[in-house]
């Protein structure tokens, strides 16, 4: 069969989801919301992992358990908790976030943070103590030492971010609850409407 005869049906097949603006907007919103959530979560998680990896403080073991539990937390439960938080009577109720992208970002942040923190923690604690101390005795400040550790653990941290992104984008359950599925409002309504 000549390739030409395949071209038209193929084009229709590939183009189909994008003809209907609804589908493309779903893809766009999914990537947008997950990307922002994972970015914020990374900025939050890596300093937490570094602090947990290299300092001792009261409650560290409990925090570690909370993070590990969070890794396996059902996404629907996370969604419900965020829903309570952003609903009118919730602690974030005044910000009018319910059924918005911001609420989805909060929910995905809560989903992505435990795996990113836990895997980053494993990666940074895996860095050779002597390498860390070398950065210190050669004259590095605490920030220099942290940068060396992050650089040494970069593959592990990249894995952590990918795992976090995977969890954020795949766990539809949690974001559906707070993002809503109302077709009338598109993928989710704009804030403040």
């Amino acid at each position: 069969m000549p390739l030409d005869s395949l071209a038209y049906p193929l084009a229709v097949f590939l183009d189909l989801p994008f003809r209907e603006g609804y589908v493309s907007s779903i893809i766009y919103v999914s990537l947008y919301v997950s990307g922002i959530a994972v970015g914020l979560s990374t900025l939050f998680s890596i300093p937490v992992a570094l602090t947990m990896g290299f300092t001792d403080f009261p409650g560290k073991r409990i925090l570690k358990s909370v993070i590990n539990t969070g890794m396996g937390f059902p996404s629907v439960v996370v969604g419900l908790l965020v829903l309570f938080a952003v609903s009118n009577q919730g602690p974030l109720g005044t910000f009018d976030l319910i059924f918005t992208r911001e609420a989805m970002i909060i929910s995905q942040f809560a989903l992505a943070t435990p795996p990113i923190t836990a895997i980053s923690l494993a990666a940074v604690t895996g860095v050779d103590d002597d390498v860390r101390d070398a950065a210190h005795v050669l004259g590095g400040t605490s920030l220099d030492v942290a940068l060396v550790v992050v650089k040494e653990a970069r593959y592990g941290i990249a894995t952590a971010i990918l795992a976090g992104f995977g969890r954020a984008i795949s766990e539809v359950g949690s974001v559906l609850i707070v993002g809503a599925t109302s077709r009338r409002r598109g993928a989710s309504r704009r804030r403040g409407r």
Binding site: D128, V131, A134, A135, V137, G139, T141, V148, E152
Partner: peptide
């Protein structure tokens, strides 16, 4: 103390080089 620390160099028993 950082200033004082920077007057000292140290070599560890294992080379402990950075991944670079």
């Amino acid at each position: 103390r950082l200033e004082l620390r920077r007057r000292v160099g140290m070599v560890f028993q294992r080379a402990s080089l950075f991944d670079a």
